[in-house]
């Protein structure tokens, strides 16, 4: 019927980026299952999928009381040894019967929540953008926990190079004519509504994680540039404040790196408007230009000092 998910993205709580081997150890949440790693074009490590059982109210724009039971699929991932994500999603399907089934029934369908009773797909999707009620399905809380597990790993030194808020991207995917809408809500909250042709595949979740990752990078770079107060503070001070961006963020931009070819058109359309890469590139140029200007000023000062 439809798929709902939420991705939380944050800065890994470690002074530097961590190597691939440490990524594997940190993400070994479930013993016996292997951590998957891909190395090109950027090191990406992802934990095995874990299930969380839920039996709760589902979102509804019309505030109807819809009950669902089943399981949510979640995982943690680390990109470039620096950015960490907690991601959860579940497919909402109509139940074959009106009665609540035993857990064995739901465990046989990992990542599916069955709706007990009547439901309209549109009502669910519209309600999902809102914050869930106390007894409602809260994928964000599950994703945040999967992020916490990584951040609290004893293998990390917790001395992150700068403080930065996590961002959360809530997404819902339906079947129909292909379309995508990305909306910024508050400083940390984003939503994506996506319509795809054919059956849902996990590649859609990958796409949303990739969007969340790049949106976080863009947000973090904007915050660092704002903190540097270019023009409002002396050049050397601004340059020092921009340094973490160069050290930790600028090399991580790899849009669509892990996105299935079938879905890459969605990224391309977002890159046309609002234009993620365009904004990123202009910010990167700004940081580099600032550092160049500062270097020139520094050299001029030095050579001037030598002549005197």
């Amino acid at each position: 019927m439809l798929v709902m998910g939420e991705v939380h993205t944050g800065l890994l709580q470690n002074s530097g980026e961590i190597p691939e081997s440490t990524c594997r150890d940190v993400l070994q949440l479930l013993s016996g299952e292997r951590v998957r790693v891909s190395r090109r074009p950027i090191v990406y490590a992802v934990s095995p999928d874990l299930l969380t059982g839920v039996d709760c109210r589902l979102p509804s724009a019309s505030q109807s009381r819809i009950r669902g039971a089943g399981t949510v699929l979640s995982r943690s991932s680390i990109t470039g040894g620096r950015v960490v994500q907690g991601s959860s999603y579940t497919r909402i399907e109509r139940s074959g019967s009106d009665r609540r089934q035993p857990w064995s029934h739901y465990l046989a369908r990992p990542g599916v929540v069955e709706v007990l009773g009547k439901v309209k797909s549109r009502d669910l999707a519209d309600g999902f953008a809102e914050d869930p009620p106390a007894d409602g399905l809260d994928l964000g809380a599950i994703s945040a926990r999967f992020l916490d597990v990584v951040q609290s790993s004893p293998l990390l030194d917790r001395r992150a190079p700068f403080k930065i808020a996590r961002t959360r991207l809530r997404w819902v995917a339906e079947q129909g004519e292909p379309a995508i809408r990305f909306t910024l809500h508050s400083e940390q909250m984003r939503t994506v509504r996506l319509v795809h042709t054919g059956e849902f595949t996990p590649a859609v979740a990958d796409l949303c994680e990739d969007l969340a990752l790049h949106d976080w990078l863009l947000t973090a770079l904007l915050v660092i540039i704002e903190r540097a107060r270019i023009g409002g503070t002396p050049g050397p001070e601004a340059a020092v404040k921009l340094a973490p961006a160069v050290d930790h963020l600028l090399h991580l931009w790899m849009p669509s790196a892990r996105v299935d070819d079938v879905l890459s058109a969605y990224w391309e359309s977002l890159d046309r408007r609002p234009g993620f890469t365009r904004q990123w590139q202009s910010l990167v140029d700004r940081v580099r230009d600032q550092l160049a200007v500062h270097t020139l000023a520094f050299l001029r000062e030095k050579s001037g000092g030598g002549a005197r």
Binding site: L11, D148, Q151, R158, A160, K163, I164, A165
Partner: peptide, 12 residues
């Protein structure tokens, strides 16, 4: 503990 840990990630 979870609250302190999350806030420490975000605030100076």
């Amino acid at each position: 503990v979870q609250l302190f840990s999350r806030l420490d990630e975000e605030f100076d």
